[in-house]
Structure formats: C-alpha cells, structure tokens
C-alpha cells in the first residue's frame, strides 16, 4: 500500500511534466498543423539553462526560472525564423527531417555547452518531504503540480480572454478566415512557436531538480510528451493534462510491478497502441476540443 502510494506520487510528478510537454506539442499543432520533433530538445535546453542560472550562477530562483524559459523561447523563435519559415514546400516529410535535424543540432549544442555529464540542482524550496501514509511526497513534486495547474489556468484565460489569445485560436480554426479578418498569420505562427517552446523550457525548468539533466535527455522526454498529447487527443489542453497524468501513472506502475528497464518501453508501446488503434486520443474524439 505504502509502496503503491509512493509509485503513485512519482507517477503524478512525472505525469505533470509530461503534461507540460504535451501542452507544448498541442499548442504548436493547433496553430501550425506541425509536430515539432525537436520539442524534447527545448525541454533539455530549459533544464540545462536552469542548471547554469540557478545551479552555477546562483541567481534568485524566480529570476533563474524566467531567464531559462526566456532563453528557450528565444531559441524557439530563432528556429522558426531561420529554419521553418525558409521551407519552400512544407510537406510533412520535409518538416519532419528539418525538425529532427534541429533536435540533433540542439543536442550537439547541449553537449558542447554543458558537456556529457549529467547535472543536478537543488529543489525550488528546501522543505522536507511530506509524509503521507508512509509515502514521501517531495516538495518539488508539489511545486511541479502547482506550476502545471497555474499554467493550465493561465493558458485557458489567455486563449479565452485576451485579444492575442483569441486571435491565435481563430487562426488555429481557420487560417484563411483569420487572414481575411486581418489576423496576420505569420505573426501567429511565430507566437505559437515562442509559446510552445517556452512550454518546453518550463518543463525543463521544473524537472531539473528531480532528475539528472544532460544533453541527451530530450528525445525521451519529447516522445513521452508526444505520447501524452496523443493519449489525450492532440490539440486539446485538458486532454494533454489527462494524457500526461495517465502516462505518468501507468509508467510508474510499470516500474513498480514489472521492471525498471521496461519503464521507457511502456510509453512507446502505449504510443504505438494509440497511433494504431485510436489516433484521436482516448477521450472520445467528439469531446476533444481545441484550446
């Protein structure tokens, strides 16, 4: 029971991180119909920036977080401007190869800047773990979940209440219609890239204290985030949350009751299963809403 609870906690923590990554995938997909195979590498950049700003430079925590997210978003914007926008025939196969190229490139940059070693940093706060029925809930886990929920609510408000958010949503629903009413679609795509990669950066920032951050952490996280997004239905904010938690918990149970080596395989088997059987996500496709 206690063990089970422990797995559940770790599942929820990981799930929250997958959810943040999944939100990034979904946001970009909504605005551009594009799936960014380099998304995981932006998570890696976020984590490693955090290592530098918080771990090495000892900046104040809030400043470090904001700087890390901003750096990643800038990298995302540069990527959009230099690579994506230059593509003359945006077929999926071309964009896949370009974003895969970007992912390898960023990995290489990560390795050159931060080396091959894994890095750790301290938690956001130094509270001792909570003890719930014998299982321990780390303070960082609470931070992660709180940040996820705040982000989700914030995004919901952004899309529903602000003019920019509404414009993005309109653009996602119909580019032509949005263009006709004067919403510049280029700007919207840039904004979507910026926001989506910022989400990636955020995921990296919150995961840094509970993992070993290294240049090659991105691919795995990216794939799992994508898996979560697919589980909940690609393009849906709440779906991303549900998919993230579901994947996190399933995976944790996989470690608990099967073997730790199979942990990563769980996510991919689940991904293949979803792709093959129910590409609309497990929430019935009718109820899947865009942001």
């Amino acid at each position: 029971m206690q063990e089970m609870l422990q797995y559940l906690f770790s599942g929820i923590t990981n799930g929250a991180i997958y959810a943040v990554i999944a939100i990034g995938f979904s946001m970009l997909y909504n605005s551009t119909d594009l799936i960014n195979f380099a998304h995981g590498e932006f998570v890696m950049l976020g984590a490693l920036c955090m290592v530098t700003f918080f771990g090495t430079l000892h900046l104040p925590i809030v400043l470090a977080i904001l700087l890390a997210i901003a750096s990643v978003a800038v990298a995302g914007l540069v990527f959009e401007r230099l690579a994506i926008r230059s593509v003359k025939n945006p077929e999926p196969i071309v964009l896949i190869i370009i974003t895969v190229g970007a992912s390898i490139f960023l990995r290489g940059i990560g390795m050159i800047l931060w080396g091959k070693d894994a890095h750790t940093i301290a938690s956001f706060s130094s509270h001792p773990p909570l003890d719930i029925a014998g299982a321990k809930l780390l303070s960082q886990s609470i931070w992660i979940i709180v940040i996820l929920l705040l982000t989700a609510v914030g995004l919901q408000l952004f899309y529903k209440k602000t003019l920019t958010g509404k414009a993005m949503e309109a653009n996602a629903i119909s580019k032509r219609a949005a263009w006709i009413v004067g919403i510049p679609s280029k700007l919207m795509i840039m904004l979507a890239f910026g926001l989506s990669t910022a989400m990636g950066g955020l995921a990296g920032v919150i995961i840094a204290p509970i993992t070993m951050s290294s240049y090659d952490m991105g691919t795995m996280l990216g794939l799992k985030g994508f898996c979560a997004a697919m589980l909940g239905g690609l393009g849906s904010l709440w779906g991303a949350l549900i998919g993230g938690f579901l994947l996190g918990i399933l995976e944790a149970m996989g470690v608990g009751f099967v073997s730790s080596g199979l942990k990563d395989a769980t996510a991919f088997l689940l991904l293949l299963f979803i792709l093959y059987v129910k590409p609309g996500g497990i929430i019935s496709s009718a109820s899947v809403k865009r942001f």
Partner: peptide, 12 residues
C-alpha cells in the same frame, strides 16, 4: 564532439 551539430545542420 561536433558529430551531432554537423548532422543536424546538414539535415536542416
């Protein structure tokens, strides 16, 4: 050291 950077650039 640069393998990945070079591959990535080539692909893009």
């Amino acid at each position: 050291e640069f393998e990945m950077v070079v591959y990535g650039l080539i692909l893009m």
